[in-house]
Design a protein around this nucleic acid. Structure first.
Lengths: 225, 225
DNA sequence: GTCTATAAGCAGATAGAC
DNA sequence: GTCTATCTGCTTATAGAC
């Protein structure tokens, strides 16, 4: 009934005999990598243990069972997917500027973590109960960035811009879903796009690079009055 | 070494003692339902058997093993996702009309098959070898609709419209990815959107209904010269 | 073609030594 | 904390009767 996790760390080694970090951290990193690549159901505790350079039994020591480990990973990935973008959207920059920054940031970030969107999508499809954990992750961000309810702030800004005649009116939900769709979907569906459009890895990178300049123009064009 | 599948059907019952269709078809339908809901790795042959009202052993009789059954389902779902939209995009209607029809069709179709996009996305992420089967599915459609390489046709149309000054220039790949992203992503990420935007099922339906009129305007607006 | 019964192989989880 | 060894249960897959 011992609960070592997230209590005080043991006296532990720094840069000790095993590769970087203490075991718990290594396990979480390895689990992250494996779960995101294979999906929760397809992931094997054995593979995680190997990638963390520890024994299977240690995973259970720290995280009790597979499901808890999966939850920890899901929260981490989901939070990473919203944190920085949420901060931008909740800031008080002008709308046009926000759009450009969100596109640039998302396209860069997702290039580095290509499996994340597909993973989160399929986890949520297969385990609806994870929406709760998703909300936890979002709230956590809100607390850290100090922008409570960035959606409401954004909605107000959109309506103000529309009334001022800077953009044509659009429902805030549609605005944000459009923006996120255009940024995230190409990565979530990357293997699909590469197949249909006959792109290799290099070609996909070029496609995304082009998109970095193309997409803000496209989006702002759609908002012109 | 018998290969009953897709050879001639047995003398079989029509509207026989078991519910609709012959066993092979019932199995495929059940597998479709279960795989799409749980993902390939999370699906159980037992559950499929029950949903098809047959015994587990019969799944192996018809499809040999789980993997083959999964492939059959994947091909079917992928084909269903492209068939009708591909036909529209490959037709010779004016561009503006195509956009309106694709949006309307996709939003309707996906409302009825909400799990399909997420399923295809995660399958392709977890099994890159399925891209081949994806291509099979696409080719199959191409042959049926008689529009060989609808992408090339669409690209030509876009360039022509741009030269005529009807729309502003846009790379054909960006055009199609934008259109598909805006239609498909909200369904692929449906649980995510419902959580973030605090929508229940009814609310999501309203959101999509609004999108049916909003999205074509948004997209055409972005293309205005 | 369809079933029952069973084999064979893992994967998750625990016990206990160090 | 970390390991080795083992148990238990589930899942795919096959054998064989009808």
């Amino acid at each position: 009934m011992v609960k070592p996790s997230s209590k005080r760390r043991p006296a532990a080694k720094r840069a000790g005999p095993d590769r970087d970090g203490d075991a718990e951290q290594r396990i979480l990193d390895a689990a992250h990598s494996v779960f995101v690549r294979r999906g929760t159901a397809g992931a094997r505790m054995q593979e995680i243990a190997e990638e963390a350079h520890v024994n299977k039994a240690l995973l259970h020591y720290y995280f009790r069972n597979k499901n808890r480990l999966a939850e920890a990973v899901f929260r981490r990935v989901a939070a990473g997917l919203f944190a920085r973008v949420g901060a931008i959207l909740g800031s008080d920059e002008p709308l046009e500027h926000k759009i450009e920054r969100v596109v640039a940031l998302y396209l860069d970030q997702l290039s580095a973590t290509p499996y994340a969107p597909g993973y989160v999508i399929s986890e949520l499809n297969q385990h609806p109960e994870r929406s709760g954990q998703l909300l936890d992750a979002v709230r956590q961000i809100r607390d850290q960035t100090g922008s409570p309810n960035f959606l409401a702030a954004l909605a107000a800004q959109i309506q103000a811009s529309a009334r001022a005649g800077d953009i044509r009116p659009i429902a805030p939900e549609q605005f944000i879903v459009n923006l996120v769709s255009l940024c995230v979907f190409p990565f979530a569906a990357r293997p699909l796009l590469c197949t249909i459009l006959q792109l290799d890895d290099k070609g996909f990178q070029r496609f995304i690079a082009q998109r970095k300049t193309t997409l803000p123009r496209f989006f702002l064009g759609a908002l012109r009055p």
